[in-house]
Design a protein around this nucleic acid. Structure first.
Lengths: 218, 218
DNA sequence: CTATCTATCTTAACACTGTTAAGATTGGAC
DNA sequence: GTCCAATCTTAACAGTGTTAAGATAGATAG
């Protein structure tokens, strides 16, 4: 599945000057993924439609099946990239701080920021039933993102691996729950810029409130 | 919308011994809600279908519209009852403990237990886009459930109302995030009885890990 | 250079879905 | 006893994901 990455843009050298003539080439996968991400960004996770993705990519509704099998396959690819982006954001954030405690705090902020700025993608990443939940690459991408947390946590709390895992689960739960509740407007509207900033300062308080405990326990 | 609660079961006294003859009467709302809850319990939130709910209630696909407007209306009613049940569970749980700290801990366990035992209902309660998100009764029911947390939290941490709200948000985020992540299999499979118990003991550790801080700060 | 092969895409169809308008049926109000 | 408003059905519409069968194009082999 997912093809061998395509032969690096095979050029139709003799005819058709524009690459959009007749048939798509190796770019369809990317075009479909991009189209899907655009839908998620513009209208949220529930608005995704395989046909709309195909429409935006300029192909027939049946075309995606040859590359991704079905809608779940395409969305799984989108989710994998989402986890990669999330892991990258968490890693970048941590790298910008010196103090371990600050790294964790910054990661918490970055996690929620990611969720609130890319709600459609974020929701889809955690909509197992719309994905191929047991896809190895998806599972690995998800675990890799979680590991970014564990690395900092282990540095902070020490203890046995199991203790670190529990602490990481606690941290992840907090920021994930906060993000989810915020996205469901449980802390007020997140649409306006003012609402967004209010929620982020609230998160700041929440993190300062909960996580000092981890610091004291090493 | 949602009708004036129906005239208390108008009996077809003279004909038709069985109440299932020809037309439904004041019981359709209840029948549809029950059918919807059954679908959620059996196959999860994504499996819900208005037509299937109508099918189970023994009516045509168009019948629900007269009572709930559309699918969102019906699901909103289901979500309201879900929040009521959740609030009741949280209240009952708290009432069974003496120590405030234990009340909070027990509520955390009860929250996740509710989510894991009624995943379909729980997921639907937090699927704003599938509900009439601004329905006053829904908002009130949601707030009432959240208040069960705030009551205990305020008792535990004291401080200003805003501090209490922040602490409640922290507590709610933790258990909500844990439940959500568990439901997406991020802590291992929750299907088996063994997996369920493992996750609940993990939650126990998480709560003991995070919330003692609240205790120390009063 | 030509023939063939295989991946890619389209067309057409199927079984679904939610929603709506128009008509039938009912029980109770007047 | 007649009308009325609520309730339900029938029928239709636009839209969905998926599949099978056929068309097309690019690469490959002779």
């Amino acid at each position: 599945m997912t093809k061998p990455i395509a032969p690096a843009r095979a050029k139709p050298s003799h005819k058709a000057p524009k690459p959009e003539a007749g048939y798509h080439h190796g770019e369809l996968q990317e075009a479909l993924i991009a189209a899907s991400e655009a839908i998620l960004a513009e209208h949220g996770a529930e608005a995704f439609t395989l046909r709309e993705a195909a429409r935006r990519a300029g192909v027939s509704p049946a075309a995606p099946s040859h590359h991704f099998g079905n809608a779940q396959g395409l969305l799984t690819e989108v989710a994998i990239r989402g986890y990669d982006a999330l892991a990258g954001a968490l890693r970048d954030t941590a790298s910008r701080k010196q103090d371990t405690r600050e790294k964790l705090h910054a990661q918490g902020l970055a996690y929620v920021e990611f969720a609130l700025k890319h709600p459609g993608r974020f929701q889809m990443m955690f909509a197992n039933k719309r994905l191929v939940a047991d896809d190895p690459r998806l599972r690995q991408a998800s675990r890799a993102a979680g590991r970014e947390f564990e690395i900092i946590i282990a540095e902070l709390v020490g203890g046995t691996p199991k203790q670190a895992k529990t602490a990481a689960a606690a941290a992840w739960s907090t920021v994930h729950g906060f993000a989810k509740l915020a996205l469901e407007d449980k802390f007020g509207s997140v649409k306006s810029e003012a609402g967004y900033r209010e929620i982020m300062t609230m998160l700041n308080h929440v993190l300062n409130y909960l996580w000092p405990a981890s610091n004291a326990r090493r």
